[in-house]
Write a protein that binds this DNA or RNA. Structure first.
Lengths: 145, 145
DNA sequence: TATTGTTATACTCTATAACTATA
DNA sequence: TATAGTTATAGAGTATAACAATA
């Protein structure tokens, strides 16, 4: 366990916070699909990982309030990217599943992301890349802690 | 230079993108000062590092459009956190400087951030922390590339 | 009575377009 | 003519509060 009195840790968190906020703004602009917001994209990613989830679960995972998730899921459904079904055990809940169309779109967007990746690679050396790869899982953990 | 055909790199970028977006939403909520938006906070951080800047420079650094920075700077000025002065050489430009009050506020917020830091430390081991510390400068570089 | 999800509404942040002043 | 900053306006995304249905 790190020593909290170390100024290095505080500096690291400050740097991390600032970088994440600024990077998130850049990512918002560099959308792989112009018609999908970052959170919509993130929800599809979560569904791809978890297979299926209720709106409430998605709201908790994406750290948005339930009404916001209602709207997001409705938009995704209107675009034919998710299906909404009745929950088998609890009639209050619903079950959200991604459609085949969403899978195709995710595959396509993966290709587009490679272009962004390529543009980044020019400015990072192998060592920097390695550090990012190492940290990615930790950031994921942080994000849903 | 990394090999772009490696699926690992693509997976890492996907993971990174998702984590940064979700973490940024968490950070938005975990504001150290309730009256300051993340970008306002970031601008103060930039000013603390750079000492002084024009609105245009700040807009470029924070990746927002000039009108947005106009608004942000005006809000910071209203809160007594920055001063706006005439540019010595060019009467079109202005110079933004942080006030003593901003410095005091940043010092105070650093203390508050330690609380957040402490709550995180419980869930990360030393190895994970080390990875974050290593990656922080790379994320910063990415943010202003 | 507690919980899941929704509707209605308002707020925050940012962008675009058009304008002013200076270079 | 080009540039720095501003004003006015609109849009995206999210939150809170009040509500319906079910547990």
């Amino acid at each position: 366990m790190p020593d909290l009195t170390h100024g290095d840790d505080v500096a690291a968190v400050n740097s991390l916070r600032s970088a994440v906020m600024r990077l998130s703004r850049r990512l918002k602009h560099q959308r792989v699909d112009e018609s999908l917001s970052p959170t919509e994209m993130s929800v599809l990613g979560t569904l791809a990982r978890c297979g299926t989830a209720t709106p409430g679960e998605l709201a908790r995972k994406e750290h948005v309030q339930p009404p916001s998730m209602t709207r997001i899921v409705a938009l995704l459904e209107a675009k034919g990217l998710v299906r909404l079904e009745a929950h088998p055990d609890d009639r209050r809940q619903k079950v959200v599943t991604q459609t085949e169309r969403a899978e195709a779109m995710l595959a396509e967007s993966r290709k587009k992301r490679n272009a962004w990746l390529a543009s980044l690679v020019d400015d990072l050396d192998e060592d920097e890349w390695a550090k990012l790869r190492e940290a990615a899982p930790v950031l994921e953990k942080l994000a849903h802690l």
